[in-house]
């Protein structure tokens, strides 16, 4: 279970966890839409920090580039290009919100119970990777995962062409 030893990893984990949770809670509670996007960028950076703790340095940088960079900016552009009520006028539906909160809390309770109950065996040997995480990922990407890699590149091309076509102004 939770046998904490106050190592450096635990302290760093705690800092990133506080960053992620406070960012996510602020995202839910802010009134202005742009503030929500900014607090979500903090969440993305916190997740990138956790990736570093998990020895996935390449993914951490991909996370910063794609999520904290591209997706946040894309969302800000989406907000700017669509007219929105500045303060996201909440004509409150308290029953709906309460029920949703109860449902989300119940889901968290079930997940937490399952995590506490299940018994994760210790890994047999540590992750056998060299010093260079990026190099190992590159090798895998061009040997074992070459077909999914190419398929993802096709998917990205199709998706971006589709996005341009969808967002283009229709000719009269």
């Amino acid at each position: 279970m939770f046998n904490f030893n106050f190592s450096g990893e635990f302290v760093a984990f705690f800092v990133f966890a506080v960053m992620i949770i406070s960012g996510a809670v602020l995202m839910v509670s802010f009134a202005k839409v742009v503030h929500m996007v900014v607090s979500l960028a903090a969440v993305f950076i916190g997740v990138a920090g956790m990736f570093v703790l998990l020895e996935a340095e390449f993914l951490a940088f991909v996370q910063v580039l794609i999520y904290a960079g591209a997706v946040s900016i894309l969302m800000i552009f989406g907000i700017m290009m669509t007219k929105h009520q500045e303060a996201d006028a909440e004509q409150a539906k308290p029953l709906h919100e309460t029920l949703t909160a109860i449902g989300a809390l119940a889901l968290f309770g079930i997940l937490f119970y399952a995590i506490r109950q299940s018994d994760f065996p210790e890994p047999e040997q540590a992750l056998a990777q060299g010093t260079d995480n990026t190099m190992e990922i590159g090798k895998l990407l061009f040997t074992q995962y070459v077909i999914p890699f190419e398929l993802v590149s096709v998917l990205l091309t199709v998706a971006f062409i589709g996005a341009i076509v969808l967002a283009k102004k229709e000719a009269e």
Partner: peptide, 29 residues
């Protein structure tokens, strides 16, 4: 289990936001 709990918290907050928020951009986020 700490990481799994962290991910569960994040997932539940995301679920709550997706179901409660009205602005469609925020739902995507």
């Amino acid at each position: 289990s700490s990481y799994l709990t962290m991910a569960a918290i994040l997932f539940c907050i995301g679920l709550y936001g997706a179901l409660v928020k009205r602005n469609a951009v925020i739902i995507l986020l």
